[in-house]
Amino acid sequence: MALQGAPALALENITVTFAARDSNDTRYTALKDATLTVAPGEFVSVVGPTGCGKSTLLNVAVGLLEPSSGSVKVFGEPLVGLNQKAGYLFQTEALMPWRTGLDNVTAGLEFRGVSREEAVRRAEDWLARVGLAGHGHRYPHQLSGGMRRRVALAQTLILDPQIILMDEPFSALDIQTRQLMENELLELWSADRKSVLFITHDLEEAISLSDRVVVLSAGPGTHPIGEFSIDLPRPRDVAEIRLTPRFVELHTNIWHAMKDEVLKGYARTRIQ
């Protein structure tokens, strides 16, 4: 079993190099020597300029992408294949459009051989927990963007993963829905403190949700350049906490660390 005191997720010296299809000369190194750990029960956010390889980092953590070098350890054990202990919330639509909301939530349980009645019972419970009781019979296209996010959240959390990886899960939502979802996420999370690795480009979102914020450098060759412990008291309300002096102070500090990288990333995208 897991080693005592081992981090839930440890990415050690991860380098990811994509070989270009047409020639070997034009390689692209998305991540270079990136090291990042998430302790059990810790909520870590990763922020970085646009196009810096944040999603690549998550894909490595979940096992969809094998790093060119470096190691991934889950509770102290090296990761082989897909990360069985992790749930993944995608940035884009990942629900199966041909299944109803309820059937999307039950999917993971069905894959694991849970009986249909049991799966439906638990899925209905989860739909209620994400505020979608009575909407399970709808197909994804009949739900709003925010509701689809809730279904995706229930779909991931019903499997009770010990690590939750989130790739800008709320970036497509309007600001009000987004703050509601963030509060709900915090509430769900505080109920049984999973390890969370949350990717975002929104610094305010990162600070208001996390225990720790990791700042990435601009790509190529992205790696963490700063870590900030967020000592804001919990439970938090994401809308209100933004107005506190400590939040503003943290925001200023982290933004100072980020600014140069953001400008670098911006300059690079302008050249291309």
Partner: peptide
């Protein structure tokens, strides 16, 4: 959609279940 496929795999679908679901 590669995302739907990746999602199903992470949710634990084996190759047979991927085919069916």
């Amino acid at each position: 959609s590669p995302t739907v496929l990746a999602n199903a795999r992470i949710l634990g679908a084996n190759p047979k279940q991927l085919l069916r679901y």
